[in-house]
Design a binder for these strands. Structure first.
Length: 278
DNA sequence: TGCCAGGCCGAAA
DNA sequence: TTTCGGCATGGC
């Protein structure tokens, strides 16, 4: 990683090119907002920032101290994604998926936020998930002024734990709203510690989080990958199996790999963008 | 109108 | 153990 400090922003170059659009729209997060100038506005742990890519480098308009404290880890700057891509390219299909997803970083999102957004993702589509999450934050999060705009933090579990299903009705999250409340109550009460799950082996953490209502294998694996950065979590989806079978990519060979989650995300993005496996 | 969207739950076989 | 309908909502 090579960091250059400019007057208005920081520029970070890694071994692999960074793509803001791919990273923010590949389906791993639902909070970054595209701006007319091609940059993206986001807020993580109450800290807002504008991000864009330039010649494959990650550019971020944030103070250096904030970068060191938050964004360096959030954008997973210490991981060699070029090496991951190389290890991924074992046949024609995987090579195409690896090349297509090469700009993606697996973000280290706050666990609570990742859990909630993927609870909301079930049987849903990305634009609607994004809209529901936005309404959730606007209604229950804290406003943060940034560059003349107002962004909203992701609401804390303590806030949602006290909410009634009726109060969440404006989200139009449907049957997922009670799942959200149940998860908030579990976390807020201390019955479930998401941070404690970090220290557990992936299988044990999966078993724990699946105790929550509305958390099945799929939501659990997305939480493990995007919320706890457990790269060996490997969601096995219907679409992936279909696509793998149709295109000859054998996804089973990647299961259990230390970076299986990265592979699955490249696959998901590639398959989705090319509307494969339908 | 019908189908699908990064599923999960509970019942029935 | 597998299969299947129901569950809210909204876009196409």
């Amino acid at each position: 990683m090579q960091l250059t400090e400019h007057p208005s922003h920081l520029k970070i170059r890694g071994a692999a090119p960074f793509s803001a659009r791919q990273t923010f729209t590949c389906g791993q997060c639902f909070r970054w907002q595209a701006q007319p100038d091609g940059s993206w506005l986001g807020i993580v742990d109450g800290q807002a920032a504008r991000v864009w890519d330039e010649d494959g480098a990650l550019c971020i308009a944030a103070p250096r101290a904030q970068f060191d404290a938050l964004w360096r880890a959030y954008f997973d700057c210490g991981t060699d994604y070029a090496a991951i891509c190389r290890s991924f390219s074992v046949d024609d299909f995987t090579a195409r998926a690896a090349a297509f997803g090469a700009g993606i970083r697996i973000l280290r999102q706050p666990p609570w936020e990742a859990l909630c957004t993927f609870l909301l993702s079930q049987c849903n589509n990305i634009p609607r998930i994004t809209a529901i999450v936005q309404r959730l934050c606007e209604q229950w999060g804290e406003p943060v002024a940034h560059e003349g705009r107002t962004l909203y933090t992701f609401p804390a579990p303590e806030v949602l734990a006290d909410a009634s299903p009726q109060a969440l009705a404006p989200l139009r999250a449907g049957y997922r709203a009670p799942y959200l409340i149940a998860a908030a109550q579990a976390v807020a009460s201390g019955a479930l510690s998401l941070e404690a799950l970090r220290g557990l082996p992936t299988a044990d953490a999966r078993r724990e989080v699946m105790q929550l209502r509305g958390v099945g294998r799929k939501v659990a694996d997305c939480f493990l990958l995007f919320g706890l950065h457990k790269l060996d979590a490997f969601p096995v989806d219907t679409w992936m199996k279909k696509a793998a079978a149709y295109y000859g990519g054998d996804m089973k060979r990647f299961a259990g790999s230390p970076v299986a989650g990265v592979y699955q995300q490249y696959f998901f993005y590639y398959v989705r963008e090319h509307q494969l496996g339908k």
